[in-house]
Design a protein around this nucleic acid. Structure first.
Ligand code: NAD
Ligand code: NAD
Lengths: 212, 212
DNA sequence: CCATTTTTGTTAATTAAATCACATTTATAG
DNA sequence: CTATAAATGTGATTTAATTAACAAAAATGG
């Protein structure tokens, strides 16, 4: 991929999606170039942090000019592989999963939930947004024909470890969970959490502490 | 609150909700005490990080013994104010907002969405999980009678700045958004983002980079 | 074409977080 | 009661991230 891969700081990679999205918005609004100071204003990141981040991906800017937005989009898009569809599977089509499936990353045409699974016989067979809900045991077969790059899980906490074990068994290595249950996985498997409760608690805690 | 407030590292505070939840789970399962090493195994945090984190909140452990789970729950619960109901407002009751409202933090009895708002006349007046959806303009009045500690926004990106301006005008200072649109707010107002697309992109990127 | 201004890219400095290493404390077993 | 083992709490160190500072590069405007 990029010439110098391993040394890019984690935090710089974490910010890449934000940069990418913001630059796309700017391009959509007709902007052709941007300076680190302007971009910093928009996304509330120090210009110097932005410049350093960008520098990891090559010599992207010009002194006294700034950055060519289309060029940045091109480079960052390549890293994020936005030109290949990234097929995802959704496990657990309850209230939350349903919302995700109906939306199905419509603003991000390369991300796509291509199959969905649940344990409840009442929802299996139902079709939402062109995706028919299957029993989880079908996943292994699906993977034979369609590439699944990652899984989004909205199963309850108590089912999560069991689900993950099966996913690992299927060869899935990237999992995003809305349930905060910590699970054990092999070292090559990545689990991320989107922990709503913690986010809210931290939000309130921060307010509490800072405005006293 | 805690005796020594301002100096607690951000990251230690960020982990507090995780500690709290995990300890509650352990207590529910009948455990009375825990060692930093055991806890570290469960939540995948270095024991030494845990001990340092805990130390910011007092002398909570005993050498050769570990930590008393009930005591930790007591201390952390106080900081997180779990014994007072934290009233929340939900703005935008679409697919995602609906899922949040139906669930309404049922696992966290002190967090509660007590009022919900939308712009769409078709959904205004509808009652979900005992909460009746109101026009957003009613928020200012609601705040007179019920304390709203924070807001969860699931309005689309294009509406977010406008909504935030109104929230700020109402005196709201804590906002959690599912739309990644960066907004400008006064310094005393905190906005957090729960950015699903970035999470997925980073998840896939991490896999890409680490298993090559 | 030159002087001035702007803005990058990066070295150096700073700040923050994580981890190491161990002295100290307490529990426990004999 | 003493010796041993276990586990904490924290200075010291290391690692990572951010920010400052500025030289070099490119643009712009006489
Ligand atoms: N909705 C929220 O507001 C919210 C907030 C915080 C966290 N969460 C987390 O997200 C999870 C899902 O939330 P929800 O509101 O959609 O709950 P839900 O109960 O509506 O949906 C859960 C779905 O998972 C399915 N499921 C259960 N076990 C399964 C298994 N072994 N394999 C496959 N599918 C299985 C169920 O049949 C159900 O359809 C919650 O349990 C919670 O951990 C949700
Ligand atoms: N659902 C997903 O999978 C998903 C994924 C990533 C991000 N998001 C973000 O979350 C947002 C909501 O997702 P959704 O699926 O619930 O969309 P949705 O369209 O179903 O719901 C949006 C709701 O917001 C309401 N609304 C619009 N403008 C408003 C205003 N000014 N004041 C009050 N209410 C207003 C709409 O009437 C609607 O009910 C998305 O726009 C997106 O930014 C959603």
């Amino acid at each position: 991929m990029t010439p110098h891969n391993k040394k890019i700081p984690r935090m710089s990679l974490e910010r890449l999606p934000i940069y990418y999205r913001t630059l796309c918005n700017l391009a959509d609004n007709g902007y052709l170039r941007i300076k680190s100071a302007q971009l910093g204003k928009i996304i509330q990141i120090e210009p110097t942090t932005i410049r350093r981040d960008f520098s990891y991906f090559g010599d992207l800017g010009k002194s006294g000019y700034g950055y060519d937005i289309a060029h940045l989009i091109q480079i960052f898009g390549e890293i994020l592989e936005v030109n290949e569809t990234q097929g995802l599977a959704l496990i657990g089509v309850g209230n939350l999963g349903r919302a995700l499936l109906i939306n199905n990353f419509r603003r991000n045409p390369n991300l796509e939930i291509i199959s969905a699974y649940d344990a409840d016989p009442h929802v299996i067979g139902e079709t939402i947004n062109k995706v028919t809900i299957q029993p989880l045991s079908d996943l292994k077969a699906t993977i034979q024909t369609q590439q699944i790059k990652g899984v989004i899980s909205t199963v309850p906490s108590h089912a999560f470890q069991e689900v993950v074990d099966y996913l690992v068994d299927c060869g899935i290595t990237s999992i995003l969970s809305f349930a905060p249950e910590p699970v054990h996985v092999p070292k090559n498997v990545h689990v991320r959490y989107l922990d709503l409760t913690s986010e809210v608690q931290n939000l309130l805690l921060l307010a509490e502490i800072s405005d006293v």
